[in-house]
Amino acid sequence: MSIVAAVILCTVVGTVGAIVLVAAAKFMAVEEDPRIEQVSACLAGANCGGCGYAGCADYAKAVVMDGVACDKCAPGGPKAAQAIAAIMGGEVSAVEKKAVVQCQGCEKNCKPSYEYTGIKTCAAAAALYGGPKACSQACVGFGDCVKVCKFDAIHIVDGVAVVDQSKCTGCGACASICPKKVIMIDEAGPAKPVVLCSNEDKGPVAMKECATACIACGMCQRNCPSDAIHVVNNIARIDYTKCTGCGVCVSKCPKKIITYPLKQA
């Protein structure tokens, strides 16, 4: 008899619980837009965080729910952006993003100012007088960016970081880890030039520090027909909203440090 009672009791409790849950699932259901799943299927799925969201799923949700721009998935590139645009409706003309190291201070160009014997990370070395190189804005060259790159696209060559453009997805992981902030994510594409230096010292000082430093002479600024390049803090920087990619600055630069790093040779 007691077995029957026990079975009945457990069944009743279980059934009541089931009814409560079914009712809750029905009345408190969260309706998720089916497009969220479609959008996340288009993304690269690397969860690199380059878009600025917690992960691919989070970004997909932001695209569908908040109407965030659909070209933020760097690893997915223009293909993913177009696929998302097709789902969300609308067109997009996205340029592939690539990382560009704005420093050419390799061992030959930029001599060390002291011998660094500490922990071999950029973050630690950068904390000591801005790094062991003569130029205190230079790439430190211990490869914090190499460790953080999920695509094996950045390497240290002769003491300076070099991006492998064929592998780079422009996710921006290297740019955000770099303690010297010499890596920029180029959204302007191969048609527009980049100043490959970050040195903020005055001309004569910069010249002594590194063979490939921007000496802030202002030749580029004076000759630019579209007022797109300016020397600020002793370093030339290009405003890509104005730059037409004409190449005048490239030819005028006496140090030859303004180039088209993304252009295929």
């Binding site: 007691s2 009672a5 026990a6 009791l9 457990c10 409790v13 279980g14 619980g17 089931a18 409560v20 849950l21 809750a24 699932a25 408190m28 259901a29 969260v30």
Partner: peptide, 26 residues
């Protein structure tokens, strides 16, 4: 049926947690 305490309580707690999860999600 005091000996059924453990199994019945686990049932109740499991239902409650599921319910709270649905509630929080909403």
């Amino acid at each position: 049926l005091g000996y059924l305490q453990t199994i019945v309580f686990i049932l109740v707690i499991a239902v409650l947690v599921q319910f709270i999860e649905i509630f929080l999600k909403k």
